[in-house]
Simulated assay, not measured.
Amino acid sequence: MKVLVTGAAGFIGFHVSKKLLERGDDVVGFDNMNNYYDPALKEARASLLKQTSTCNSGNFTFIRANLADKVAVDQCFKDHQFDRVIHLAAQAGVRYSIENPMSYVESNIIGFTNIIEACRYAQTPHLTYASTSSVYGANTTMPFSEKHSVDHPIQFYAATKRANELMAHSYSHLFELPTTGLRFFTVYGPWGRPDMALFKFTKNIIEEKSIPVFNHGNHTRDFTFVEDIAEGVIRSSDQIAQPNSDWDSNTPDPSTSNAPFRIFNIGNNNPVKLIEYIQAIEKALGKEAILDLLPLQPGDVPDTFADSSALEKSVGYKPSVSVDDGVKQFVDWYRDFYKV
């Protein structure tokens, strides 16, 4: 197949693109390589994707452009006929959305609109896109289920991703565009983002600096290894969303529809306390952390716990990498990449 992956030089987009290339698919990567974090890391990912395409049957084409640029997006769809679109590009980060909300409007609202419009006119067979566990917001019922209400986000980032889900449903309903939204739960692993906890903690422990531990380490997170995530994304993309023939408008299931629309949690189904996560990093590094215990930050969700049974039933997704193994793989990559 020929697959468009937006955010291909990003953390999850890189792993998804690499898996697609390794199985023989042609990948068109679309990324603006912005400076939200060190662009050198994005360049290194893109370079590795180009190397991967020379060693396998899948070809990699890279487009350096902004999704908010409608002309660039339309030209991409004019130049290529896609069998699948996997939309992973977004402005990420919970706390940054408090500081710079307009960047989320550009990337997550305007960019998403340009992609879904292009899919509509190209009659793309299936659009799979990234949502987030942050949409559960003020909900405290565990584990989080796709059937729960998600109408009370507690930060702007989550509000923009919830908007994407609603926009997708409108296009699925109006234009019969098959769409699948995936709510990611705390993804971690090699080639991760420098603004994420695992990256910051590893760096500071190596440099013998203190690490900020919010909510005094009492957070729990459904940490999900990036290779497991990439496998779930690809399986979801392969299987085209279909209308739910049992959908009842009197008692609607918010995760499906009588349109070709669906939403899945994609997590590890095994929440871990933040302090235990830090202990896994200490074990992998062979060094103790200096903890700076801090209160809960505005916009932070204290706990996440994914019910991923619907995704497992639909596409056979079942994560297999433990936190200890996943953290060790990240630490090994970090030491090799940064030569420390």
Results as ranks from 00 to 15, higher is better:
R64G: 08
T113M: 12
R84H: 14
V94P: 09
L48R: 14
K18E: 09
Y37V: 07
I116L: 05
K19M: 13
T128K: 11
V16T: 04
P39V: 04
G58F: 01
N32V: 11
E99D: 15
Q91F: 13
S57P: 07
Y96T: 11
Y37P: 03
H126Y: 12
G29P: 04
S107I: 08
I116C: 04
N59G: 12
Q51H: 13
E117R: 12
A46N: 14
S131H: 01
L21V: 01
R23I: 12
F112N: 01
T113D: 08
A118W: 05
L20C: 09
I86W: 01
S17C: 10
D79C: 05
I115C: 03
I86L: 05
Y104P: 00
S47T: 14
T128M: 07
Q51W: 08
P39C: 02
F112P: 00
A68K: 09
S131K: 02
N66R: 15
R45N: 09
Y96V: 14
Q75C: 11
P39H: 06
L67K: 06
V28H: 02
N114S: 10
S107R: 03
C76M: 13
G111C: 10
D69K: 06
K70L: 11
T128L: 10
T52S: 07
N100K: 14
V85F: 03
K70F: 13
L41D: 06
T52F: 09
D25I: 10
I63A: 02
D83I: 09
N59H: 15
F82Y: 14
L67Y: 07
C76V: 06
A40W: 14
D79R: 01
K42N: 01
Y36D: 09
Q75D: 15
E106Y: 08
T61L: 10
L21S: 07
D74S: 12
T128V: 06
Q123G: 11
V28P: 00
K42W: 02
K18F: 10
Y121L: 11
Q81H: 11
Q91P: 04
A72L: 08
Y37G: 03
L88A: 04
V28Q: 02
L41E: 06
Y36M: 11
L88S: 00
N108H: 04
N66Q: 12
A40N: 15
N108A: 04
T54G: 09
L67I: 10
N35Q: 05
R95N: 09
G93N: 07
C76W: 00
A72C: 08
A89N: 04
I98C: 09
K19F: 08
L67G: 04
G111L: 04
Q51C: 10
D25T: 12
L48N: 14
H80F: 14
N35M: 09
I115H: 01
